[in-house]
Design a protein around this nucleic acid. Structure first.
Lengths: 308, 308
DNA sequence: TTTTTCAATAGGTATTACCGATAATGTTGA
DNA sequence: TCAACATTATCGGTAATACCTATTGAAAAA
């Protein structure tokens, strides 16, 4: 019968392309890994590793099998995690990723509360843009993601957390600085300072303004960059509410925040995890803890569904 | 590290509910199975088997883990099958299931041709109703299904084969026996003899006639039963084209077949297999072989999508 | 060429999966 | 209640094998 251990050797070799390094990664000696892979090839009756080549290259079949093997190894780890979690729920190490336009502000607001409610849980926080977050989530590098929904992805399960209102942030010199509100229609074609492409907030803002990507000359690397730019001059940008709250409470004086209406704009923040993940109870616990701290949604808030 | 063998022991125990029988199914002795399961419990740090109970009952966690384990074991088998198939494509044993309203007629028409084209392939044929077919397909008990599409099922891959026209079969004494065509509208509320519930053909016919299930007094167990009933008296039923062809070529004299028009009714026949199945090349080969033998679709044929 | 790098081989050891026999336990029928 | 039975757990021994270190062989780099 096939052995998961042998399969994991193949996965390691596929990923590292080097017998010695793969062996090291698996905590075995190089001869062991070589021998077991040879055994695996006999069991399957297939050449997995390209023969006679200078480099370590898997055959076409080998690569396909390594891919399947990787999925199985991941499932094995999830099974073990599930078993652990069933003993002591809400303990252990949790690899959590949050999109950059949300991470610092969300953690500032909810971090203490979460730690208080889930003392047994060590949260390892990663800041990843949506695309990379999804990849790492599916590959098992992270366990839970917090990002903008909806994300129609097979094999993933989601839980909505909050409709985060979006504001227009403008410098005091900006022509709109005296406005008490801006309608969505007025935003069409407006010149905004946005984040780099890849950030879902930038995509969403572009949609709201019906802009093509080329029309944007300036791209910030983080919301904090945008903050300084708007604060310094007469630019304008889209600001999620949590960032706004943080900036206000940190004494930012030079930005005026204007509500966007007709309809009120928001983005849907939520959790994402693998469907079979052992960490789903953690998701629910985090949801419970965070929901208490976040402001209540007003009724007329409307999500802008993001087209991926 | 977790061992697939141990996991398969747990799966066997879950399914058979008996240490001895499970051991037998795994070709090991009962003490071996007991011991390995004990080891597994230690590894996972979880009680898998209900202690102190009279019957062998898995704990709640145990059952969940057995379910995950089953999926992994299935994947292991598929991986092995894939490796085998990569050596000698289109050989070996193929477990094929076909819905009963199609199986005999399809095999009669295409069996010889398939065997001629795929001499290395031993086909093990099962006759299963849609629901059971899907279950067995997902659990790995069968490899390929031929049934009525669409079947929106996660993890399964499909390939459409043929739009099979549907006819109205009536006895010579039936009021409609002299008609040259029947429109779909005329079928509404018509009294038809149908198959038992569970057969997708019956569901589809009911939809066509806009009937509730209660309104059907008579239910046949197979199309052959319906044939005798219609042939003997003045009943009417929906007949798929392949059945009709078979009946005609077997000398059935007492049934008149009336085309259903406005629009012409049909059902979509197609293949279904697990997404990662090693047997997909077989599906394509079968598709190629069968498509040659089946009649060409006329352009105005319309599928009636089945609501599950 | 020599040196270096890397995988394959050899030989030996510790682990463990496995078996048969048997004991312990629970279940059932009188 | 106590046999008679069915079923699982335990015991001791064995064969298979996963693993190691040391070494060799072959290819690439110097």
């Amino acid at each position: 019968m096939l052995s998961l251990k042998d399969l994991s050797y193949l996965v390691a070799l596929d990923e590292l392309g080097h017998f010695g390094k793969a062996a090291q990664a698996c905590y075995v000696s190089q001869p062991t890994l070589s021998g077991q892979l040879k055994k695996l090839q006999n069991q399957l009756g297939v050449e997995l590793i390209e023969k006679g080549s200078k480099k370590v290259i898997l055959t076409h079949v080998g690569r396909e099998i390594a891919q399947r093997a990787k999925a199985m190894v991941l499932q094995a780890h999830e099974l073990e995690a599930f078993a652990r979690a069933s003993n002591k729920p809400l303990t252990g190490r949790l690899k959590l990723a949050i999109i950059p336009s949300l991470a610092p502000y969300l953690m500032a607001k909810t971090g203490a509360c979460v730690n208080a409610l889930l003392p047994g849980l060590t949260i390892e926080l990663h800041e990843l843009e949506t695309h990379e977050l999804l990849r790492q989530l599916k590959s098992g590098e992270i366990d839970i993601g917090i990002l903008v929904l909806p994300q129609p992805q097979a094999g993933l399960r989601h839980l909505s957390l909050w409709q985060e209102p979006l504001w227009l942030g403008v410098g005091h010199e900006h022509p709109w600085a005296k406005k008490t509100q801006v309608t969505r229609g007025q935003l069409a074609g407006a010149e905004l300072i946005l984040l780099k492409e890849g950030h879902c907030l930038a995509d969403q803002a572009q949609q709201m303004c019906q802009l093509k990507s080329q029309s944007q000359a300036f791209r910030g690397a983080s919301l904090e960059t945008l903050r300084y730019m708007v604060s310094a001059g007469n630019g304008a940008t889209i600001v999620p509410q949590l960032s706004m709250d943080a900036w206000i409470s940190h004494g930012e004086q030079n930005i005026t925040y204007i509500p966007i209406t007709s309809p009120k704009q928001a983005r849907e923040i939520g959790f994402l995890a693998r469907s079979g993940s052992a960490y789903w109870p953690c998701v629910e616990a985090l949801h419970g803890a965070m929901a208490k701290v976040l402001p209540k949604n007003s009724a007329d808030t409307q999500t802008v569904p993001l087209v991926i």
